[in-house]
């Protein structure tokens, strides 16, 4: 037995396309932390037949990989993951365990914390301090207040971090790292939930409040622009919304109306096409994270709310945007590293 907990662990997450971005973000953050605390950066790779992810993990700084492969780990089953991770923690006693604040990470982290009575901090922004005096800062109270939390004495500390907040570092070349392959017997009776199926969400039909990206159109877009805007939305995986004018003109349905008399939305990105920005509309979208506006009118009020303001005819611009998005996507599929095709 070692005297004190060691290592910064990151729980890997993947889907059919491989390791998810959130893991890369955690690795980017974890590298800095590991360097500062002089700890080893380790990844827990759980799943069935996931060995293919190892090279990518090493590119982003993983120094040691704990690999557990099991049939029951093929789905993100909370009970199975908690059991296996628990076995690993018992055996290797890490210092910090980081996960993504994703749907699965958000329930796994507190579950393990409760099982071993460990301090758990969700949605953390950063980790400062060292040794016994770690301090974690997180955003709370509607992002109006940041709080700093002392995870008191017990270790490992379990932390989840929200996706999309950290810039992913430049990858290195894949390298050889130590892979500790563990065989864990998972008792069948611990599985109390069972995945039945995945229902694919269709941005065209999901509720506007849920939408991550919204392509919104106004009276200026006109009925004839709906097909190209729908195409843009499809290319981005976005949902269509619109101003009251667009609803009045019958371009879109009322359920898709943004504004004081419609839905209040807070997407990560809102692309406003042919929307002048009546106060009715802006009141329903002013808390969107990023806004790009395309309008023919230089003085359109929507530009006061936009991060990117484009003066021009959307009928000319949007088809080209769609083409360029398709090209970018193809490049990505040709093996370019994700999130880094910005220089293209």
């Amino acid at each position: 037995m070692r005297l004190k907990p060691e290592g910064i662990w990151i729980l890997e997450e993947h889907d059919d396309e491989g390791t998810k971005n959130i893991t890369l973000e955690l690795l980017s953050e974890g590298q800095k932390l590991a360097r500062r605390l002089n700890e080893q950066l380790c990844v827990c790779l759980l799943g069935s037949q996931v060995g293919g992810c190892i090279p990518t993990l090493t590119q982003y700084g993983a120094e040691k990989i704990y690999l557990v492969e099991h049939e029951l780990l093929s789905e993100c089953s909370l009970d199975a993951y908690a059991f296996v991770l628990g076995e690993l923690i018992k055996e290797y006693d890490p210092y910090i365990l980081m996960m993504g604040a994703t749907p699965s990470g958000s329930e796994l982290a507190p579950r393990i914390a409760a099982r071993f009575k460990l301090p758990c901090i969700t949605e953390a922004k950063n980790i400062t301090g060292q040794e016994e005096n770690l301090q974690i800062t997180k955003s709370a109270y509607n992002d109006q207040v940041y709080i700093t939390i002392d995870p008191l004495a017990r270790r490992p500390l379990i932390v989840t971090m929200p996706p999309g907040e950290t810039d992913i570092i430049e990858p290195n070349k894949p390298r050889e790292v130590e892979v500790i392959k563990k065989n864990v017997e998972i008792p069948a009776d611990i599985m109390r939930t069972k995945r039945k199926r995945i229902i694919k969400g269709d941005p065209r039909t999901i509720r506007l409040e849920e939408a991550d990206i919204i392509v919104s159109l106004g009276r200026g877009a006109g009925n004839e622009s709906l097909p190209i805007l729908q195409e843009l939305a499809d290319a981005l995986g976005a949902s269509i919304g619109g101003s009251r004018g667009a609803v009045d003109d019958g371009i879109i349905k009322f359920e898709r109306q943004i504004g004081i008399s419609g839905k209040t939305v807070t997407p990560r990105l809102l692309i406003a096409c042919g929307i002048s920005g009546a106060r009715e509309f802006t009141a329903g979208m002013e808390n969107s994270n990023l806004v790009a506006a395309v309008n023919i009118d230089q003085k359109a009020r929507i530009f006061d709310y936009a991060n990117l303001c484009i003066k021009g005819d959307l009928r000319m611009i949007i088809p080209q945007v769609i083409d360029k998005i398709q090209i970018a996507k193809q490049k990505r599929e040709k093996g370019q590293v994700l999130g880094l095709d910005t220089k293209s």
Partner: peptide
């Protein structure tokens, strides 16, 4: 031009990681 403007919009999307793989 429409082409330039389209470039700006795509660039904006790329910079803000809307064209990279799904995060969530």
């Amino acid at each position: 031009s429409a082409n330039q403007l389209a470039d700006h919009l795509v660039k904006f999307l790329v910079q803000n990681k809307f064209l990279s793989k799904e995060d969530k």
